[in-house]
Computed example of a mutant assay.
Amino acid sequence: MKLGIAAVAAVLCLGGCTWLEPPIEESDIAGAALGPGEELLRSVPGEGAPAYRFTIGGGGACARADGVFDGAAEAFRMTISMDGPQPGSSVTMGLVLLGEDAWIRIGLEPAEVARQLGLPDGWVAFDPERVESFRIGGTGGGSDPAGAGDLLENAVGVTRAGNRKYSGTLDLTKAEDPMMLTTEQITALGDAARSVPFTASVDAEGRLTTLTTQVPGGTCRIAFADYGKAVTPAAPATKDRSDEGEEKIYEILNS
Rank of each mutant, 00 (worst) to 15 (best):
V8A: 11
V11E: 12
G16R: 01
T18I: 05
W19M: 13
W19F: 12
W19G: 13
W19V: 15
E21V: 15
E26A: 13
I29H: 01
I29L: 14
A33S: 15
L34P: 04
G35W: 04
G37E: 13
E38Q: 14
L41Y: 02
R42C: 05
P45K: 03
E47R: 14
G48D: 14
A51F: 02
Y52C: 07
R53P: 05
G58W: 05
A61W: 10
G67Q: 11
V68S: 08
V68D: 07
F69M: 15
A72Q: 13
A73R: 10
F76A: 09
R77S: 14
S81F: 10
G84N: 09
G84L: 10
Q86E: 14
P87E: 13
P87T: 03
G88L: 04
S89V: 09
S89K: 01
T92C: 05
M93R: 08
M93G: 01
L97I: 03
G99M: 11
E100N: 09
D101N: 10
W103Y: 13
I104R: 02
R105L: 10
P110G: 12
E112H: 07
R115W: 00
R115F: 01
L117K: 01
L119T: 06
P120S: 04
D121A: 11
D121P: 01
G122C: 09
W123D: 04
V124K: 00
D127W: 02
V131Y: 00
V131I: 15
E132V: 09
E132A: 14
E132N: 07
S133F: 14
R135E: 14
R135I: 01
I136T: 08
T139M: 13
T139N: 07
G141D: 09
G141S: 11
G142N: 12
S143N: 12
D144N: 04
D144L: 03
A146K: 00
A148D: 03
D150G: 12
D150S: 05
L151P: 04
E153V: 11
V158R: 04
V158F: 07
A161G: 08
G162A: 08
S167F: 00
S167W: 00
L170V: 03
L170T: 03
T173V: 13
K174G: 03
K174N: 06
A175R: 01
A175M: 03
E176Q: 10
L181E: 06
T187F: 15
A188E: 08
L189V: 10
D191H: 00
D191L: 08
R194S: 13
V196H: 04
F198M: 02
V202A: 10
V202S: 05
V202H: 03
V202F: 07
R207I: 05
L208N: 04
T210A: 15
L211W: 01
T212A: 12
T213Y: 02
G218I: 03
T219C: 06
C220E: 05
C220G: 15
I222L: 15
F224S: 02
V231G: 08
P233E: 11
A234V: 11
A234W: 00
P236D: 09
T238W: 00
D243Y: 00
G245W: 02
E247W: 01
K248I: 11
E251D: 14
N254C: 14
